[in-house]
């Protein structure tokens, strides 16, 4: 492969993974946008989804993509309950409180999974793994990654449709805009919050399933993914779905370019590049790359 081929292949890989990044960010950024809670356990919910897929895949023999049928409702319920029990108490509190509580939640989730399934890295196998590849003009389009991208796009579109076209979605957006006003027009804010959290967690769990056939999963993978979600949200703004897709693809591209052309960084590339993006974006444009991030003064 000469340089330009390598470059194009790298770009393709970046875009393929970008879809996953986009969809995995949405849960984080919508929760932040609607409830003002920065969910540090985000990566752990992702991990939970991935482990559910792995258990069903390895112990029950399911095709990973089918496990979504179980993951979505179960994770929704989990999110709904956690919101009512825990998150509801911290919504109006200072940010430190929310950060620490969700961090505690992250520790509990990661160490519980470690207790049950040990810290060994795992991976799911789809029927498409390995031997199937679309091949055109010398470039490789791995089927699994393509399917992941398609599924991610479908989920994003689903969420977009839900938020913009359905009544309930509209009440979520109203609650995000102005809590008091939403309450005045008869929206039951607590239910809206709980359902929002449930939906976001379901989406995050599904994203966890999507990444389970692509790379190894382990109980402590969460922090890196939370960081990525944060970096993409910083670029995209809160609850901005097309922005998240764009930001995700950008991160995917940066990551893949770095991994290909800077040989020594190796497996740490994702973390380093998302960190660099995050700090650069936040320092140069505190309102987010595409706007829509709350100015730091407003959030206390």
């Amino acid at each position: 492969m000469d340089f330009s081929d390598l470059l194009i292949q790298t770009l393709i890989n970046g875009i393929l993974i970008g879809g996953l990044y986009g969809v995995m960010t949405l849960g984080f950024s919508v929760i932040w946008g609607v409830m003002g809670v920065i969910n540090l356990a985000h990566g752990e919910f992702l991990m939970l989804g991935a482990y559910m897929a792995w258990v069903l895949n390895k112990q029950q023999g399911w095709e990973p993509f089918l496990t979504l049928l179980v993951i979505l409702p179960v994770m929704f319920l989990l999110g709904y309950v956690i919101q009512i029990v825990l998150i509801n108490r911290i919504i109006e509190k200072p940010h430190l409180i929310a950060l620490l509580v969700t961090y505690g939640l992250a520790i509990v989730m990661a160490s519980t999974v470690k207790l049950i399934y040990t810290a060994n890295p795992r991976i799911t196998t789809t029927q498409f793994s390995g031997y199937w590849e679309f091949d055109f003009g010398g470039f490789v389009l791995p089927v699994t990654k393509t399917l992941v991208l398609i599924a991610a796009l479908l989920m994003m579109f689903g969420l977009y449709f839900f938020l913009n076209r359905t009544r309930f979605g509209k009440s979520i957006r109203a609650a995000a805009q102005n809590k008091e006003a939403a309450r005045m027009v008869g929206i039951e804010i607590n239910k809206v919050y709980a359902a929002t959290f449930g939906i976001c967690i379901a989406l995050t769990g599904a994203a966890g399933m999507l990444l389970s056939p692509l790379g190894s999963i382990h109980p402590f993978m969460g922090a890196a993914w939370t960081l990525k979600a944060f970096a993409i949200t910083a670029m995209a703004g809160l609850g901005n779905i097309p922005g998240a897709l764009l930001g995700g693809m950008m991160l995917g591209l940066v990551e893949n370019l770095l991994a290909t052309f800077v040989p020594t960084v190796g497996s740490s590339v994702g973390i380093i590049s998302s960190f660099a993006l995050l700090v650069i974006v936040l320092v140069t444009r505190p309102q987010g790359l595409f706007g829509g991030l709350k100015a730091p003064q407003e959030i206390r």
């Binding site: 940010h95 950060l99 944060f230 973390i271 995050l278 936040l282 505190p286």
Partner: peptide
Amino acid sequence: LKGPYFSIAMLG
């Protein structure tokens, strides 16, 4: 950076 942005940037 302020508030949570600082916290996360330092975690990063």
